[in-house]
Design a binder for these strands. Structure first.
Length: 496
RNA sequence: UCCCCAGUAGCUCAGUCGGUAGAGCAGGUGGCUGUUAACCACCUUGUCCGUGGUUCGAGUCCGCGCUGGGGAGCCA
């Protein structure tokens, strides 16, 4: 729907496209009476021809409607921006009396033009010449102009994207997904789509959802089922991570990343966990743990800057409605130098802490949420990498350090959220990886290919995983992961 | 999965000491020449989450269950 023409484009192709658009426009909108095409509301205020008052057509859903005898004010939103546009309908417009009764949520197309608004709430009005009702909204439309609780909005997930908050959240989500790709593309990382269905259920990342075509009512309990007769001929499930396959690609394309869904069948009931979520997982060959922290720091800062610059309207909304000061908080992260701290040093800080913790602090034990938040909120007061954890509390694939007590793991902790990134340098030495798999009880029969990658040109490599939804929570101030996922899956919830 | 809290009209919530159900908003009707969560008048709306118990009587007290929220664990 762009109205500007790129100069270098293939002209004949462009003409074909324009003709196709024209045909489709005539098909879809036979009564538009010479108006070029539908204009997105966000484009209305940024293009000079519309500001001069050129006639055009906007289409969207009614957010609110105020009618008096001779005039109707209709707030129209098409999802392209937060405020939408106020459509002013005067009594000469065809169907005026019927339009007065139009319900909130109705879908309408309006032909008209921008005029400067004499009112005080907005700069521009859209003066209607013609209003077509595409779809009326029933009087039971559940979204009201006043504030709803997020809990209630979750129960109407089919309609909540039409609310201000979720409009902002999902525009931010879309922008940040693009930012993830642009960050890695600028650095010449290869995007790899790792499989969603996997046969290795021992990646260390929690319970798998089973994938099968067999009918459990006929074959009995899954534990007794014979998977050799099933579709894949073996036990399969939904992936918990694309990392292992990502490593294989990094050993061919050097720098790669995956960005896709991951699934965990854990019975987690917290505001930070979902059964289906999206992960960003870069992997770099010929890179060590330090390189990994550099990439992670650049990545997080890039994403913060991107949100502030490219979702400024949404960030201003979050700052006002969701979390006061969120813009300043994100700006500080974008400018901060992240701290790098050894696990052992973190333990020392915790032992010396003038506060008491509910969980014990001792070298060899994992850091609890309360410990992580103390470090990043009280000790460093900025994002901090915790490096080189004891091997016993980390996954089998992490590289054993020379002290034989720690592995080259890293967690990035940020104020308010805690862990936002987890990663490591990978064990590239065949014999050490082999014994680590034995020690962790990881089946080599299933992961033979992973182990074998260490036989043919194995190289030092490192990578990390960033939970995309946790990033969105961090950027927006939204406090429940269910409110940054379009249709969230959590225990007992897959209804939409 | 464990601990704590909550569930009353379509939504947000009030409901006193256990005495028989309320407000605002939404919706409906009418009014209003420029509104801004419009305003004014009138009107409609209840399995008080379910279930069992205590009691002359339960929205209110007790048990169990369901759902939601917060915290913890698991983790991203």
């Amino acid at each position: 729907m762009t109205r500007s023409r790129s100069s270098g484009a293939d002209l004949s192709l462009e003409l074909l496209c324009l003709r196709a658009i024209r045909y489709s426009r005539e098909w879809n909108y036979p009564e538009t009476d010479g108006v070029a095409m539908r204009t997105r509301i966000s484009a209305l205020f940024s293009e000079e021809s519309f500001i001069r008052g050129e006639r055009c057509e906007v289409a969207g859903w009614v957010r609110s409607l105020r009618a008096s005898r001779n005039i109707i004010f209709m707030l129209l939103n098409d999802g392209s921006d937060l405020p939408g546009v106020q459509v002013v309908i005067e009594d000469h417009v065809s169907g005026f009396e019927e339009l007065k009764k139009l319900g909130t949520g109705s879908a309408v197309k309006v032909t008209g033009h921008l005029v400067e608004s004499p009112g005080s709430g907005q700069k521009w009005d859209f003066a209607a010449e013609k209003v077509e009702v595409a779809g009326r909204s029933d009087e039971s439309y559940p979204l009201q102009k006043k504030r709803h609780s997020f809990e209630y909005l979750r129960s109407i997930a089919h309609l909540r994207p039409r609310s201000n908050t979720f409009g902002a959240v999902f525009r931010l989500r879309s922008n940040m997904a693009h930012a993830v790709h642009s960050f890695f593309r600028e650095r010449n990382f290869l995007l790899v789509h790792t499989p969603v269905i996997t046969s290795n259920d021992c990646e260390g990342g929690g319970e798998l959802f089973r994938v099968a075509t067999m009918n459990p009512e006929k074959t009995g309990a899954v534990g007794q089922a014979d998977f050799s007769d099933d579709f894949f001929g073996c036990r399969t499930g939904l992936t918990v991570s694309g990392q292992l396959e990502g490593e294989l690609f990094s050993l061919a394309f050097t720098d790669i990343y995956t960005f896709g869904p991951a699934f965990r069948a854990e019975n987690s009931n917290t505001p930070r966990h979902a059964a289906e979520f999206w992960m960003v997982e870069p992997e770099m060959a010929f890179a060590d743990l330090y390189d990994n922290t550099v990439l992670a720091e650049d990545f997080v800062k890039y994403l913060c800057r991107h949100a502030l610059e490219n979702s400024a309207e949404e960030m201003a909304f979050f700052d006002q409605q969701i979390e006061r000061g969120v813009i300043e908080r994100i700006r500080k992260v974008a400018e901060a130098d992240f701290v790098r701290m050894e696990y052992s040093e973190a333990i020392e800080h915790l032992r010396k802490a003038p506060v008491s913790f509910n969980f014990p602090v001792e070298w060899g034990l994992d850091l609890q949420t309360e410990h992580e938040r103390y470090i990043t909120e009280q000790v460093t007061r900025r994002p901090v990498f915790i490096l080189n954890y004891p091997c016993d509390i980390k996954a089998f694939y992490m590289r054993r350090n020379d002290d034989c007590k720690t592995v080259a793991a890293m967690d990035l902790l940020v104020p308010k959220i805690g862990e936002i990134i987890g990663g490591s340098q990978r064990e590239e030495r065949h014999d050490i990886l082999s014994s680590a798999m034995d020690a962790h009880g990881v089946g080599k029969e299933q992961l033979w290919w992973y182990l074998e990658s260490r036989k043919f040109g194995s190289a030092p490599h490192a990578g990390f995983g960033l939970g995309f939804e946790r990033l969105l929570m961090y950027l927006s101030g939204m406090e429940n992961i269910r409110d940054v996922i379009p249709f969230p899956r959590t225990p007992g919830n897959a209804g939409f």
